[in-house]
Design a protein around this nucleic acid. Structure first.
Lengths: 243, 243
DNA sequence: CGTCGGGTTGATAACTTTCAAATTTCGTGG
DNA sequence: CCACGAAATTTGAAAGTTATCAACCCGACG
């Protein structure tokens, strides 16, 4: 395996031991790099003939809007994550995608993707694995929204984001840079922005976490883990399943 | 394409036009049929070396438990659905699987599955598609729990279940047989059983749906759709993406 | 019969939202 | 470098939604 590849290749490699051919195929998949401005949606629900992207830098969120005007953020994507894979496979985007910050992403053509699956089948398995991992995160999110109170939910969310960022070297046990506004947090957590604000204050005053000035700081990591009932290694695994 | 195949094959065929070879491979994947009793969990969170199953008959639910004692049902599976695919790919079960009724399911060995991906790559794409479809349902569920009030959430849930069942011929516009208790409904919706009971009464008294005696009856389908802000064709698509 | 799980209902408590307004932060143009 | 306006954060008070607690009912089943 050659030296430097995209964060995406690094991620897939954790599941399937990829050959040089497969790595090369992967790299060819996404050569068309594009930049998108924060706040301008890349994809809208209902749009067909979707393109998928692989996120190279910046943060993105996927969300759905309801007719009553509220929105639910389903997930945030960070560098190395796939954008819009589901929309491509299902033919129609079932959610909106909005860059939280200015982002760089490289386009993946459906045609190329499906061809790659045909020629290097293990890639398909790898992508399936990545998709499963994403789904696991959505599931965890659902559990939080359905069964945790505002405080636990918020705490859990901040920890989980930290865990994901740690995997790509963007967080430490101390904290991480976080470009989210309290409104976005609210839309992700299924709470009102006002309440999120109160909960954040509470967590801060309890000496657990500080969410301020675009930074999340863990003041008492273990205390937070306990409060949030957080499973420290749910994203872990033991290396490639397929060799 | 030959005549009769499993509901699973039928489902995948909707995405990828499958050759006879591929269909045969599919059928060979799951020949070991087993029966499981209602209420006895098949899989527990944290278990490793998982087996996956394809559900042939009966209903199943996947759920997670929290330390505070509450549980969140993530999804229900109905005939033709995959069970535990994610757990297999991630190496460790990240949720519990409980048969709601007595079920019949056929075992799928990981080894066979991965081999099938290698020999008939298009199957991998098809399974990826099916996984995406499942994820879309979890996403919709998340949106409901996060941003709908109890009434809309319940209404939406009953409609969505109906839509899924209709796809496999187990529901009509009139209603469907539903083996769920109000407790399960509560755990799926992120509500208390007591409140679910009240909401169901309300929906019944509004003349919209009746949830009683193991049957869901749509008394005013359109009214319910309106109340629930339900997108009637979010599970639809236009036939095989790959030919 | 007696028990048990599910369903039903009322009363009360807890949690969250909504509304309104003040304060702070931050980017932009002068 | 400062002023201004827009956006984000913060706080209080009141209203609304949902949970919890406590009974009671009912049919299935041993």
């Amino acid at each position: 395996m050659t030296a430097l590849h995209s964060p995406f290749a690094r991620k897939l490699g954790a599941f399937v031991a990829l050959s040089n051919l497969e790595l090369a195929t992967l790299d060819k998949l996404h050569n068309r790099r594009r930049t998108f401005a924060a706040g301008r949606d890349i994809t809208h629900e209902g749009q067909t003939d979707q393109t998928a992207y692989i996120l190279a830098s910046g943060w993105v969120c996927s969300y759905k809007l309801l007719n009553n005007g509220s929105r639910q953020i389903v997930d945030f994507q960070i560098p190395g994550d796939f954008l819009g894979l589901r929309s491509v496979l299902l033919r129609t985007a079932d959610h909106n995608i909005e860059p939280v910050t200015t982002i760089e992403a490289s386009e993946v053509l459906v045609k190329d993707l499906l061809e790659a699956f045909d020629t290097t089948p293990r890639l398909a398995a790898a992508v399936l694995w990545a998709a499963s991992r994403d789904e696991a995160m959505v599931v965890e999110h659902l559990v939080g929204v359905g069964r945790r109170d505002a405080r636990g939910r918020t705490a859990h969310f901040l920890l989980e984001l930290g865990a994901r960022l740690k995997l790509v070297g963007l967080a430490t046990r101390e904290g991480y840079a976080c470009p989210l506004s309290q409104y976005m947090l609210a839309d992700a957590l299924g709470l009102s922005a006002v309440h999120v604000n109160r909960v954040l204050r509470e967590l801060r005053e309890m000496g657990l976490v500080t969410f301020q000035n675009g930074k999340v700081t863990f003041n008492d990591f273990n205390g937070l883990v306990t409060l949030a009932d957080f499973d420290k290694d749910y994203l872990d695994h033991d290396g490639p399943l397929m060799r």
